[in-house]
């Protein structure tokens, strides 16, 4: 008995073709540009950007195992400096690079999201609203007890970020009006570290990217406006900034594809999922 007839083989081939046809369209989309590419993309800088960068990198690398994307933090200052010095392909910053930096390194900026910077306290802290003057007094170190603000009779522990932080730059400029930050403030090195510090310290106060806020920390209303995705989007919450990806000169190759991907429908979807407002 013939096991493999001509018709039988043709039928099998047809089945395989049909199967392939149904698989391929699922992968079609903005990620298609990466098909057949190989190489590496090195990304560093802004820590607010990291969730989006990681998710985008994961999706691209899953579809294209030949591409390696590394995502590091360091802060906006580090990102701008490293991309300028050619150490990475994309340097992220949570503030617009200054004219000086742009000119010095010949940077191209790509603003792909809007993000707020909100004050956070531990969820156990009853103080959930502050006026701008109270906030300034706390960060300047003039207001040192939670009691006067309606909380427990405990010392306020102020947390801040180092100077490389774009989150700090925006918060300092737009929330503190360039006011003093006390020398007694604790320093943490990323948005993630700020979140775990405040989540662990019932008497702490700090500031994080609105996209990073979750149940481990409680947002504090500033002059009556709670920092959320919606208030940032509507413009009611004023302490906001753009999230930038910067390249040295016009991006090319994989770097250009990656930035294109951030602006694609799928990229914008990721930006929204991670709690930011995508921009065109």
């Amino acid at each position: 008995m013939k096991a493999f007839t001509f018709q039988g083989i043709m039928f099998g081939v047809c089945l395989i073709v049909v199967a392939l046809l149904t698989i391929v369209p699922a992968g079609a989309g903005p990620i298609d540009g990466f098909k057949g590419q190989q190489g590496t993309i090195r990304i560093s800088g802004g820590t607010a950007h990291i969730p989006v960068m990681k998710e985008a990198a994961k999706r691209i690398m899953t579809e294209n195992p030949e591409i390696q994307i590394s995502v590091a933090g360091g802060g906006s200052g580090v990102g701008i400096k490293q991309v300028g010095e050619g150490l990475v392909d994309i340097g992220n910053s949570g503030r617009k690079p200054s004219d000086e930096e742009t000119a010095k390194y010949g940077l191209e900026h790509f603003k792909w999201a809007i993000d707020g910077v909100g004050v956070v306290v531990n969820p156990k802290n009853p103080v959930k609203t502050l006026s701008r003057d109270q906030l300034k007094a706390i960060f300047a170190g003039n207001e040192t007890s939670w009691r006067a603000l309606g909380g427990q009779d405990k010392m306020i522990n102020v947390y801040t970020r180092d100077k490389a932080s774009g989150t700090r730059a925006v918060f300092w400029k737009k929330a503190l009006d360039k006011g003093v930050i006390t020398a007694r403030a604790n320093f943490v090195v990323s948005n993630g570290a700020m979140k775990s510090a405040i989540g662990n310290d019932p008497y702490g106060i700090g500031y994080v990217s609105v996209g990073h806020m979750d149940a481990t920390v409680a947002p504090v209303a500033l002059d009556g406006v709670v920092p959320t995705l919606d208030t940032v989007k509507s413009g009611a919450y004023k302490v906001a900034r753009g999230l930038y990806s910067n390249t040295k000169g016009e991006p090319s190759g994989l770097t250009a594809l990656f930035i294109e991907y951030l602006f694609s429908t799928e990229g914008r979807q990721i930006v929204m999922e991670k709690g930011f407002i995508p921009v065109r």
Partner: peptide, 28 residues
């Protein structure tokens, strides 16, 4: 804690020389 103030007790937050290097390395 990495605070830059001069400590006055062992319960104060301080910054060490090594942490300082790590924190400032990103400056201009």
């Amino acid at each position: 804690g990495n605070a830059v103030a001069l400590p006055s007790s062992v319960l104060d937050s301080v910054r060490t020389l090594t942490s300082h290097i790590a924190l400032i390395i990103a400056a201009d």
